[in-house]
Design a protein around this nucleic acid. Structure first.
Length: 467
RNA sequence: GAGAUUGUAGCUCAGUUGGUUAGAGCAUCAGAUUGUGGUUCUGAGGGUCGCGGGUUCGACCCCCGUCAGUCUCCCCA
C-alpha cells in the first residue's frame, strides 16, 4: 500500500519542528512576561459544546467523530439511528445519536467551556494562553490546512480596555521579535452595527461586514456590487462609501466617524472604546513598533472578523511586506458574553490568536528564521568494533555526563560509511577511538567543519567540546 | 458546495501526430578506497505510466468515468 496522510495535514521534519518551536518559544516567553498562564484542553469536545458558536459556515466545518459501537445498539435505538441517518443524508445536520464528539475548531470556545466548568477555582480576571492544534474540514489551499495550530491569549472577567491595549502590545512585540513586519488593524463591532443602523438595515450587519471585509481584495466597486447583491439599498451603499472614504491618522478617522455617527449611541460607544484603547496602548507600547515613525496599529472600519461572538473591539494582523501574499496571520477581539452560552452570565472576555502555520509560511518566505536554531548532536563517536566499541561507549558516557549531546554509530560499519553519515547529519565533531587511541587512553577529535584533527586525552576532548 | 489544473522510479521531472524493450538528475546499494567525509569515476537495483473502462492492428499519449494532490471562489488562521 502506498503511504499517505489525510488531506490538509502535514508531517514536520526535524528542521521544521525546530523552526516551529522557535515560534512557540518566542510567543511563550512574551505571554509569560505579560502574566498569562498556560492551559491545555482536550483535542475533542462534546459536539454540542461547539455547534452554533461559529455561525452556519463554521458548523459545517467542524470535524465530527463517529460514535463507536453503533452495531451494538438495541433495536429501538437502531430505529432512531436509521431515521437520524436519513436526516444526515438530506441536510446539514448533526445529532449526538451518531456523532457525540468533535475535534476542536478553535481554542476560544473550549476556553469558555473551561472557565464555566472551573469558575469556582479561578481568580478573575483570569489570564491564560493556549497553544494547541485545531481542526477544520475546509478545502485546503495555500495557507489553509485542515490541521493547524493556534496560539491564543485571552482574559476573562474584566471589561477594562487596558486588556485590549495589552493584547495589542503582545501582538506588536511578538511580531517585532519574530522579525515579521505587520499591520495591526483594529475596528469595533459597534462601529459596524452603527453602520448598519446608518444604512437603515441593522439586521444586515453581517452581510455588510462580510462584503466590506473584501475591500482590500476586490476594491470598492466589487464591494458595492456585493452589497447590492446582499440587498443593501443604494442609500445604504452611499453611507458605507462615505465611511470607507475617510482617510488620515487613527485620530482623524475617529473624529470623522464620530461626526458621521453622532446620532448612533452604539457607534459613539465604539468610537470611544477605540480611542481609549489606543490611549492605553500609547502608555504601554513596548518600543519602536514602527518603521517610519508611524504606528503599525491602523484603525480600519472595513475589518470584519468572521466569528459572530465578537461584540466590541476587533483586531486582525496581516503581514505588511509587499513580497508576501497571505491572509490574516492573527486576529481576535472582545466578546461580552461568551461564557453566557454555557450558563455563566456577565463575564466579559477579550483575546487574540496567532495563526502559527501561516506565520511560519510568512517567515519562511521572508527568510527571517535565525540561522543556528538549536544544535542537535554535537559529536558522534565512530565505532571500530570489539574492544574499541567498549572503549567508545565509555567515552560516550563521559561526554553525556559532561552535558555534551553525543551519539555513537551503533554498528561497526565501514569507515567511510560512518564518515558519510556524520557528514550528512551535519554533526560538528567526529571522535575516533581506534586501537592506538585506546592503548594510549586518548581519542582523536576531528573538527568536521575545518577538517582539522588531533589526538588528545579524553578529558581534553571533553573540554574541547564543551566550548 | 462551484471551478481550474496536475498525476510517469523513493524524490524532482523529460517522454516526438499514437509505433519495438518508457528515460534523465538526485537519492539508495556495490566497487575504485578494510583509519578519513564533503568533490570525482564505474556499475547495479528500482516503474501495473493513479485506478477502471473505451477507441485502435497498436495507448504514457486520444475519449469517458473514478480517485488523489495542488490552486481559485465561498469562507477563514
Amino acid at each position: 500500500m502506498k503511504p499517505s496522510i489525510p488531506q490538509g495535514t502535514r508531517d514536520f521534519s526535524p528542521a521544521e519542528v525546530r523552526r516551529r518551536q522557535y515560534i512557540f518559544n518566542t510567543l511563550r516567553i512574551i505571554f509569560e512576561l505579560y502574566g498569562f498562564q498556560p492551559l491545555e484542553t482536550p483535542s475533542m469536545e462534546n459536539l454540542t459544546t461547539l455547534t452554533g458558536k461559529y455561525g452556519e459556515e463554521g458548523d459545517r466545518l467542524i470535524f465530527k467523530i463517529l460514535n463507536n459501537g453503533l452495531h451494538e445498539k438495541k433495536d429501538a435505538d437502531k430505529d432512531k439511528l436509521n431515521s437520524e441517518w436519513n436526516n444526515i443524508l438530506s441536510k446539514p445536520y448533526s445529532t449526538p445519536v451518531v456523532t457525540e464528539r468533535a475535534l476542536r475548531y478553535d481554542l476560544t470556545i473550549p476556553f469558555a467551556r473551561y472557565v464555566v466548568m472551573h469558575q469556582n477555582e479561578l481568580a478573575f480576571p483570569f489570564r491564560r494562553y493556549q497553544m494547541q492544534p485545531v481542526w477544520r474540514a475546509d478545502r485546503p489551499q495555500k495557507g489553509r490546512y485542515r490541521e493547524f495550530w493556534q496560539c491564543d491569549v485571552d482574559m476573562v472577567g474584566s471589561t477594562s480596555l487596558i486588556n485590549e491595549a495589552e493584547l495589542l502590545c503582545i501582538y506588536q512585540s511578538a511580531f517585532q521579535k519574530l522579525k515579521v513586519p505587520v499591520t495591526i488593524k483594529v475596528n469595533s463591532r459597534k462601529l459596524l452595527a452603527a453602520l448598519a443602523e446608518l444604512c437603515g438595515m441593522p439586521e444586515k450587519m453581517v452581510d455588510i461586514t462580510i462584503a466590506m471585509d473584501k475591500l482590500d481584495k476586490i476594491g470598492w466597486v466589487g464591494v458595492a456590487n456585493e452589497l447590492k447583491e446582499r440587498g443593501i439599498s443604494d442609500d445604504g451603499i452611499w453611507q458605507i462609501e462615505r465611511v470607507i472614504n475617510v482617510k488620515g491618522t487613527n485620530q482623524e478617522k475617529l473624529v470623522a466617524y464620530s461626526d458621521i455617527m453622532q446620532h448612533s449611541a452604539v457607534g459613539m460607544e465604539g468610537i470611544n472604546e477605540l480611542s481609549k484603547t489606543l490611549a492605553y496602548f500609547g502608555n504601554l507600547e513596548p518600543g519602536i513598533g514602527n518603521l517610519d515613525g508611524k504606528s503599525n496599529i491602523v484603525v480600519d472600519i472595513s475589518l470584519a472578523r468572521g466569528l459572530n461572538y465578537y461584540t466590541g473591539v476587533i483586531v486582525e494582523v496581516v503581514c505588511s511586506s509587499e513580497a508576501v501574499k497571505m491572509g490574516s496571520i492573527g486576529g481576535g477581539g472582545r466578546y461580552d458574553d461568551l461564557t453566557g452560552l454555557f450558563g455563566l452570565k456577565g463575564l466579559s472576555g477579550v483575546g487574540v490568536s496567532f495563526g502559527i502555520d501561516r506565520i511560519y509560511d510568512v517567515m519562511e518566505e521572508l527568510n527571517v528564521f535565525p540561522e543556528q536554531l538549536v544544535e542537535g548532536t554535537k559529536a558522534i563517536i565512530l565505532n571500530f568494533g570489539g574492544d574499541n566499541e567498549t572503549y567508545a561507549l565509555q567515552i560516550l558516557q563521559q561526554l553525556r555526563a559532561a552535558n555534551i549531546a553525543a551519539e555513537i554509530y551503533p554498528d561497526a560499519a565501514k569507515f567511510d560509511k560512518q564518515m558519510k553519515y556524520a557528514n550528512k547529519r551535519g554533526i560538528a565533531y567526529v571522535l575516533l577511538p581506534g586501537d592506538e587511541e585506546r592503548e594510549k587512553n586518548m581519542v582523536s577529535v576531528k573538527n568536521f567543519v575545518t577538517g582539522e584533527q588531533k589526538m588528545v586525552p579524553v578529558e581534553e576532548a571533553i573540554t574541547l567540546l564543551r566550548v
